[in-house]
Structure formats: structure tokens, C-alpha cells
């Protein structure tokens, strides 16, 4: 479903990804772990098409199409979803407005009719209940004044409503207490299906106790230096990332 091939990317003049390759099959959950500054968030930005990151080499094939040629909104309508590490506050725009506009944009692209107000409300009610969110949140401005936990829940709610085929979670666990973490994981797990894949970017192993990955990759200095099963995450938890310094990248 997703083929990242030898991607080099830079932010400004600073090279960050230096030949990253990764293959994600349909229905798989891949965890990307690594120390701070290894390029984890840059990878998320590359996938979503953030204007601050420039890809200088390589391809990202999504269902065989090079998505690097698509605008961020085209990627979203094609079924790619990025759960932001730092969700943006948008004063004056309510959550329900954003959800409705986004859902209708995605549905129109799929050839589905717009949801009417009643069906939309029914859908949102169901999803907010799943994530233990209060209805009043719908009339609040997008992420404005939200706690860290509320912001992350909101990201997962949007993902629940938009039903992407590829979900990219950028440090969704950061700033969450254990209860919020469980709720967020529940929201993600409920979406797992044979034709939906996830790339879960995280610094810590604890999220992976709740969203159990099929594969774990270690990112260091812009490249994947080790890959394995879920047990690799535990190993990292025990040993930390210091060992990366002791062996040459790519080993």
C-alpha cells in the first residue's frame, strides 16, 4: 500500500531524511521509533506534504501513485490522514464545521453524496461516545483552549470520521496520561482493518502496549537502522537509544 523509496528530505538547508525506505502492506501497523532529531516528525511531514519540508530525492508510492506530486489536500482526499503532534488551534471555526467540510470533501472525492445534517450528527455522536468526548465540544473552536489530551482525542475523532486508508500518527502519545492514552488507542484500534494501514511514530514504547504493531523500525539520523517485530520495542525500552551511537548506521 505504501512504498517509501530512498527518500531524502530537508527542512530549509538542513538535510534530515537521508535515504529512508519503508514498505507498509495493507492492514499492517508499523511503528517508527527513534531518538529526538532522528527525523520521525519529518517523515510525517513528508507523507502529509507539509510545505516546510522539501523532498530532494526518492519516491513515496501510495497504491502505486507517487504522492509527492499531490497537494496536501489531494493526499487527504485519497485517504491519507496525519494525526498531528501539535494540533493547530483555529479560533472562530467550530469542530463541527471542520468535520462536516472535511467529511464532505472526502466523500465527494469518493463519489459519495454529502451527508445530511441528521446523518452527520448521528455519525459524530457515535464517534464522540467511542472517544469519551462531550457533545459540547462540537460547538467549540477547533483545538482552541483544548488540553493536550483533548487535542489528541480530537485528532483521533477526525480520523474516525474521515476513515482514511492510511493513518499516520505523529507522537500521538506525547502529553497524554495513561487514561487518555487508552482512549486514544481504543479509537485507533477500532479502525484497524485488513485494508487500512497505520504508521505510528513514537518516542516511547508505552503506546505500543495499546496499539500493538506488526513491525517496529528504528530511525536514526534520517535512515531506518533496524527493523523487527513488536519485541524490538521492548528491547528499545530496556536499552534506550544509546546503543545507536555504538554501531554504524545501517548495521
Amino acid at each position: 500500500m505504501l512504498e517509501i523509496q530512498n527518500v531524502h528530505a530537508q527542512a530549509g538547508d538542513t538535510p534530515i531524511l537521508k535515504g529512508l525506505s519503508l514498505s507498509v502492506g495493507a492492514g499492517e501497523v508499523h511503528a517508527i521509533m527513534g531518538p529526538n532529531g532522528s527525523g520521525k516528525s519529518t517523515l510525517a511531514k513528508v507523507l502529509a506534504g507539509h510545505p516546510d519540508v522539501e523532498v530532494t530525492e526518492g519516491e513515496v508510492l501510495y497504491d502505486g501513485k507517487n504522492i509527492l506530486e499531490l497537494e496536501p489536500d489531494e493526499r487527504a482526499r485519497e485517504g491519507l490522514f496525519l494525526a498531528f503532534q501539535y494540533p493547530v488551534e483555529i479560533p472562530g471555526v467550530s469542530n463541527s464545521t471542520l468535520l462536516r467540510e472535511a467529511l464532505n470533501a472526502v466523500r465527494a472525492h469518493r463519489g459519495d453524496p454529502e451527508l445530511d445534517a441528521i446523518d452527520f450528527l448521528g455519525l459524530v455522536k457515535e464517534k464522540t461516545a467511542l472517544l469519551d468526548m462531550d457533545q459540547s465540544f462540537l460547538s467549540r473552536a477547533v483545538n482552541e483552549g483544548f488540553s493536550g489530551g483533548e487535542k489528541k482525542r480530537n485528532e483521533v475523532l477526525q480520523m474516525q470520521i474521515l476513515e482514511p486508508r492510511l493513518g499516520v500518527l505523529d507522537e500521538t502519545d506525547s502529553g497524554l496520561d495513561i487514561d487518555a492514552l487508552k482512549v486514544v488507542a481504543k479509537g485507533v484500534n477500532a479502525l484497524r482493518s485488513p485494508d487500512r494501514s497505520f504508521v505510528v511514530i513514537t518516542h516511547y514504547q508505552r503506546l505500543l502496549d495499546h496499539i500493538v504493531p506488526d513491525f517496529v523500525h528504528v530511525l536514526n539520523e534520517g535512515r531506518i537502522v533496524r527493523s523487527g517485530g513488536k519485541e524490538l520495542a521492548h528491547e528499545l525500552e530496556e536499552k534506550g537509544y544509546a546503543w545507536l551511537e555504538e554501531q554504524p548506521a545501517g548495521a
Binding site: A48, G49, H50, P51, E71, P72, D73, R75, A76, R77, F81, L82, F84, P87, V88, I90, P91, G92, V93, T97, L98, E101, A102, A105, V106, H109, A141, Q158, L162
Partner: peptide
């Protein structure tokens, strides 16, 4: 960018932000 990453076209994102600005 946040709005576009949710599938809104540049025009829709811009109009929504302007609307948000005006709504106060």
C-alpha cells in the same frame, strides 16, 4: 495546512479561515 490536511481545497481552507476571523 491543517485544514488542507483534512481534505479541504486551498480555497475552502482560506474561506473557512476568513470566516473564522469574521465570526468574532
Amino acid at each position: 495546512f491543517y485544514l488542507r490536511s483534512r481534505g479541504l481545497t486551498p480555497m475552502a481552507a482560506r474561506n473557512l479561515l476568513i470566516h473564522g476571523f469574521a465570526s468574532e
